[in-house]
């Protein structure tokens, strides 16, 4: 399997995630779409690590996973806090973060 196939797949996944961020209104689904984009980046990093025969790209991908986990924790925390205060969970109305 040529390496360019993996890279084109990763570009396709990234574009799918970007479309999701643009068309969905719920912050929870937008976070899921961010995950899609981060994972597409991970796939590209690992493909390049395989292409070069060097494991450094895999370390990068591991750090990206850590960043994604942090982002999820904070994002979900904000969603739960907004839900408790009965703020509508819709990114068009959720403009200010002041509690």
């Amino acid at each position: 399997m040529d390496m360019s196939w993996y890279l084109v797949l990763s570009a396709l996944l990234f574009a799918t995630g970007a479309v999701g961020v643009l068309i969905r209104r719920s912050p929870l689904v937008i976070l899921l779409c961010l995950e899609l984009m981060l994972n597409a980046g991970n796939l590209a990093l690992i493909t390049f690590s395989r292409t070069l025969g060097d494991e450094e790209g895999q370390v990068f991908a591991l750090i990206v996973m850590v960043i994604a986990a942090c982002e999820v924790v904070i994002g979900l925390g904000i969603i739960v806090a907004a839900y408790r205060r009965r703020i509508p969970l819709n990114v068009d109305e959720l403009r200010a973060l002041r509690g």
Binding site: M1, D2, M3, S4, L7, A11, R50, T51, L52, G53
Partner: peptide, 13 residues
């Protein structure tokens, strides 16, 4: 990606 001209992209690594 395809226009980058990296030769190793057309191999299996």
């Amino acid at each position: 990606i395809i226009g980058s001209g990296l030769k190793s992209l057309d191999t299996e690594g």
